[in-house]
Design a protein around this nucleic acid. Sequence first.
DNA 1: CTGTTTACCTGGGGGC
DNA 2: TGCCCCCAGGTAAACA
Length: 272
Amino acid sequence: MPELPEVETIVRELKKELPAHKITGIKNHYSPIIKSDVNLLKKKVIGHKIIKINRHGKYIFLLIDNNYTVVIHLRMTGQLFWAAKEAPIDKHTHLEFFFANKKKKLLYRDIRKFGGFTLLTEKEYTEYIKNKKIAEDALKISLPEFKKNLCRKKGVIKAVLLDQSIIAGLGNIYVDEVLIREKLSPHFDSQKLTEDQVSSLLKTIKQVLKAAILKKGTTFSDYITANGKKGEFQLKLKAYQQQGKPCCHCGTLIEKTKVAGRGTHFCPNCQK
DNA sequence: CTGTTTACCTGGGGGC
DNA sequence: TGCCCCCAGGTAAACA
């Protein structure tokens, strides 16, 4: 499940070689992946270069040299990676991008087809994040802003941290990893956090995300980097998918339950 | 307006 | 071997 560290890893790798080459062609094999008019997107992208690549939360923005932007969201099983130009594709590969003077093509593969590409004008791009009510990115958000956003929403902390309008970039894996490190129960009432707890929570969020980026993300099932490699943060997980294993802090067995409709992994002793 | 549920999809695993 | 059902979880839309 691509969350902030996985998307950041892909963006960092794309930045290395994507902007240098003009896009010469796009093949689409499953149109619903493109949320905008397919022909318009092709028209605005083919023959142009990507001049900048941005990430906000789990969204990727490709800024084109004609002031248009392509926004990409990988959702659950989306993959964006390089392959040899002549390599055969499988039934889950929905888009192929070809480039001038490049022996590789960029593929979009997505088993569950939840992800998507959207073409935005310059004006739509500046409004996009605001319209979707997406908060500041988890790596950039300040403590005062995080506090302010937390005040807006009541509920169990697990659900609040998954809400992209409170903090952008966390998903199910990293919320569980943050909560076990903070020794906070996923059921904890977010309105009852003290000032010190909120401050510590934000510090841990940033620290866990940065540590995961250094390991190129967590590969549990589908995620791969743009260079086709698996992440390595799954070796550092303390809670997610660790049910039945001893808590690294107290030895109590990690349990799995459901909170806010999500599979939730926690230490019943540390996170009361 | 708020919180909850469902839809979007496919593959994998358990039960029988 | 195969069929059925449930589960995985990010987001939008429908719902209560």
